[in-house]
Measured scan of single mutants.
Amino acid sequence: HNGKLCKLKGIAPLQLGKCNITGWLLGNPECDSLLPARSWSYIVETPNSENGACYPGDLIDYEELREQLSSVSSLERFEIFPKESSWPNHTFNGVTVSCSHRGKSSFYRNLLWLTKKGDSYPKLTNSYVNNKGKEVLVLWGVHHPSSSDEQQSLYSNGNAYVSVASSNYNRRFTPEIAARPKVRDQHGRMNYYWTLLEPGDTIIFEATGNLIAPWYAFALSRGFESGIITSNASMHECNTKCQTPQGAINSNLPFQNIHPVTIGECPKYVRSTKLRMVTGLRNIPSIQYRGLFGAIAGFIEGGWTGMIDGWYGYHHQNEQGSGYAADQKSTQNAINGITNKVNSVIEKMNTQFTAVGKEFNNLEKRMENLNKKVDDGFLDIWTYNAELLVLLENERTLDFHDLNVKNLYEKVKSQLKNNAKEIGNGCFEFYHKCDNECMESVRNGTYDYPKYSEESKLNREKIDGVKLESMGVYQILAIYSTVASSLVLLVSLGAISFWMCSNGSLQCRICI
């Protein structure tokens, strides 16, 4: 991952900044910058967002509201009850120091605090018919004063009620008058409520006091790749198909172990950190130390980045220098085999997901714990399936590479015959000098055995068991695999060879 928040398929997220979902939807004055928000790819909250409900109280069923919003990608904020005409018999300019803005008392931008007009609070009834052709999110509140005197001074009615009804919602609220500790300079409380109004449905408000009335509502448009994440990451000019709280993932790998919460087309989250597919040879310690064997393909974004291909070729060293050249036929066979294998694994496992966190309130801790156990169970199954699949494929890959290298080895052996000696570690020792032209003939299969047989015969008789390297004779190393990324691999195959001279070296080696 890149540690950044990015656009998702070209669409920017909605960053709530210092506000949370509650503050944004109710219209906390400190969240005025969010009022123009219309569309987004996903919503970003920060872990310690401080601006929620400015007048103390709870947004009821907040967790369910977050779940609903996680599939919303755009909205239209509109005046559901026009301020100047909807409440002619009531005062609608209630403000509070708890919702101060720029040093002055204020109130929510989407709600109206209705109080008595003169000395009376006549029963009010108002309704709205949803003609938007889509779901409408309606929010309101109920004020709970701290004393009967406060109730009387604001609403005149000691036994007030609030009723809200639609086809799918029907509740009646009565204020709970009680002494409470002071929070944000208030002994009173406000509880906030919401409902989704279906197209064509009607919502009716009736009250004799204590109503925090809707002013603006939201017509919602769903987008199934949307979601809500909690993150401290910063926004950058970048684009992605998959976003996590820790950063964007741009990967076609089937798995990731970065974060379980994802938005967009994302690899499946697994616990494993070692889900690797081999593309090189079986481990040979001396070669492995030099980083030549054991190439791997990573299938977990965050564990290993991208696929690494092994390729086969020849390396030689003689009086004229040293050089490398790919054996294109065996390399292409290996590439085709690995590509098919990788595609097979991805096809089997690479279903892209959006995974969002589930919200539970403080009273639902047991449910949250149960949900976590269920999620953990599914996660263990996914991890096991992934590891088992790759384990089985790896064994076949190792066998496949062994065969490829063996074929190259036999190709060289059949040409050199007794003009060189096998020394048991995949290397041959020449009994004759071999210049670049000679080396090329070994690589392309045109090695002239009779041409060098007499010199080889004489050297075999002279050496008589002495280690060949100390006599200045020449080696050919018969097994060799270097490691390159897919891009470098293609470039390498396009070149005939490249040279690395070893000044004054008397050794001649050709490596497979």
Rank of each mutant, 00 (worst) to 15 (best):
S234D: 10
H236S: 14
C238Q: 03
C238T: 05
T240E: 01
K241M: 05
C242R: 01
Q246N: 08
Q246V: 14
G247L: 03
I249T: 08
F255D: 02
Q256C: 05
T262S: 11
E265G: 03
P267N: 02
Y269L: 02
S272G: 06
V278G: 05
N283H: 08
I284P: 00
I284G: 07
Q288G: 09
G291Q: 05
G298C: 07
G303W: 02
G306H: 03
M307N: 03
M307H: 04
M307A: 01
G313D: 09
Y314Q: 00
Y314E: 05
H316D: 00
H316E: 00
Q317N: 10
G323D: 09
Y324L: 06
A325S: 14
D327Y: 04
K329L: 10
Q332R: 03
G337L: 13
G337M: 07
T339P: 02
T339L: 07
T339I: 09
S344E: 12
N350P: 01
F353R: 10
T354D: 01
T354R: 14
K358H: 13
E359Y: 11
E359R: 10
F360G: 12
N361Q: 10
N361D: 09
L363N: 08
E364N: 05
K365G: 02
M367V: 06
E368V: 04
N369S: 14
N369K: 10
V374A: 07
D375M: 11
D376W: 08
G377P: 03
W382I: 12
N385T: 08
L388A: 01
L391I: 10
N394K: 13
T397S: 03
N404A: 13
N407Y: 06
L408C: 06
L408M: 04
K413G: 10
S414M: 10
S414H: 01
G424L: 12
N425F: 05
E429V: 10
Y431N: 13
H432F: 07
N436M: 05
R443V: 11
N444V: 07
T446V: 15
Y447I: 04
K451R: 15
Y452F: 13
E455A: 15
L458T: 12
K462L: 09
G465Q: 15
K467E: 15
K467R: 13
E469K: 12
S470V: 11
M471W: 10
V473Q: 10
V473A: 12
Y474R: 11
Q475H: 04
L489I: 12
V491Y: 14
L493H: 00
I496A: 13
F498L: 10
C508S: 01
I510W: 01
